[in-house]
Design a protein around this nucleic acid. Sequence first.
DNA 1: ACAAAAGTGTTCCAGTTACACCCATGT
DNA 2: ACATGGGTGTAACTGGAACACTTTTGT
Lengths: 237, 237
Amino acid sequence: MRLDILKQYQAQTKCLVALDSIIFGFDGDELKLLLVKRGIEEEDHTWSLMGGWVQPDESLEGASTRILYELTNLTDIYLEQLHTFGNPRRDPVERTVSVAYFALINVEDYDHRISKNFETHWFSLDELPKMLFDHDAMVKMAIDHLRYKASQHPIGFELLPEKFTIPQLQKLYEAIFGTELDKRNFSRKLLSTNLLIKLDEKQKGYSKKGAFFYKIDEEKYRKQFNNFLNFLPGSAS
Amino acid sequence: MRLDILKQYQAQTKCLVALDSIIFGFDGDELKLLLVKRGIEEEDHTWSLMGGWVQPDESLEGASTRILYELTNLTDIYLEQLHTFGNPRRDPVERTVSVAYFALINVEDYDHRISKNFETHWFSLDELPKMLFDHDAMVKMAIDHLRYKASQHPIGFELLPEKFTIPQLQKLYEAIFGTELDKRNFSRKLLSTNLLIKLDEKQKGYSKKGAFFYKIDEEKYRKQFNNFLNFLPGSAS
DNA sequence: ACAAAAGTGTTCCAGTTACACCCATGT
DNA sequence: ACATGGGTGTAACTGGAACACTTTTGT
C-alpha cells in the first residue's frame, strides 16, 4: 500500500459508532413504541431507544439484528435502516455517530420472551416520555417514515400476529394514520391485493359474531413487496 | 458524570467516518453521474464518488455541503442523506463507516466553476466505470431512490436550469425512468400542479418553433414538497 | 413548401369514494 | 329479543390513459 494513503487515514479522527432502534408494536388498539431504561442510565430516569455499539467486526445490519435479539430474543424482525444522526454534540459524553434502525415487531411474540436485562415499557405515541439525547428526533422521523411506507406498502402485516382479522388490520391502519377508514372500502382494497388467505377459524371473544382470521400469503407478499404504490384507501365519511 | 458510563464509552472501538456523495446531473439528454479521480487513488485508475472524512466538529449535513462545495463551488445544492454503509471490510485499508448523500445539481451551474483539485467526469448511467470499494452499490441505491422519489415528488426541477421548457422536463423524466412519456398527458399533469410559471421567453435554436420557458414557483414548491404522491404520469403508446 | 418540434382536447376506463342494510352470535 | 360488531353491493365521481391534428417557424 502507498504510504501517503495510510498516512491520510491515520490523520483522521475516529468516532464512536452506535446504533439505535425505533421499535414499533401494535397492541390491537394503539401503536406503541418500545423504550428501555438501561442500567447505566437509571439514575437520571431517562427512557431511551434500545441501542448499542457497533462492534469492530460487525456490519450495521448485523449489529441491528444482534441488538434486537438481545432485547427480545426474536429473530426475523422487520428492520430497515432509517437515518444516521451525527450531530457533534448529540451525545454530551463523547461524539457518537448513531445509525438509527426502524423495527416492526408483533407485540404478542414479544411479550412472553422478554429479556430481563432491561427495564422496558411500551409507550403510546402520544404519551412518549422525555428521551435520551436526540432520540425524540429519531422517533419523529420513524413515525413519518412508518406513515409514508405504510401508505405505499402493506407493511402493516409485520406488526400483526400470524393470524389476524380484517377489523384488526383496519384498526392498525387507523392507528398508524390517525384517521378513521371506511370498512367497506378498506376490506375491498385489502382483499383485492390477493395477499390475504382466509382461514376457517373465527376470532372468539372480541365480538359476538366473531371475525374470520386471515393470514398473509408470504410468497406473494415478498414478491410484490417493491411494487406497491398508493396503498392506503380513502377515509371514512 | 458517573465513572462507569465513561468507562463504558472508553471501552469501545472507534471507527473512521467518511461521507460519499452520489451526484446526479442532467445534460438535456441523459442522466449523468459525477465521479472523481482523487490524487491519492490515481495509480490504480479507479474512479470514485466524491467523498471525504467527517471532521471532528462537523455535522453530517455540514460535511456533505462542505465536500460538495469543495468540488463544485456551489452552495444550495439539493442534498439528502441516502444510507450508511458500514460493512467491516468495505474499505480494505481500514474499517470506515460511510454515510452516503444523494445530490442533484444542474450541470450548467457546475460546468464553469469546476474545481481544479480533482479530475472529474460526468458518466452516463449505462457507461459507469469500475468504482472504488462499494461505490457501485451506493450508486445503485441512489438510482433506485431517485426513481422512487421522482415518481412521488417533482424533484426533477433540482436537476434543471432555472428556466426550462416542458419538453426538457419531459426528457429528464424519460431519462430518469428509462421510458417514453406521452407529451399531452405529461404537460397536463405538470401544469396541473400549478407549480410552473410560464415566461414570455422562448427557447431558441433547438427547434424551429421554439418552446416557452417556464420557471418553478419556488414558494409553492417548498410548501407542497412533502405532499406529493404518485407524481409520474403514464407512459406513451 | 416542407420539415421538425410545440402545443392542445376528448373519450374511455378503472379505481376510489360515498353510502346503508342484513348477518351471526352471546347475553 | 336485542345489542354488538362483522360482512357485503352499488352508483357517482375522479383521475389516468390512449389517442391525432393544428401551429409555428427556420430552411
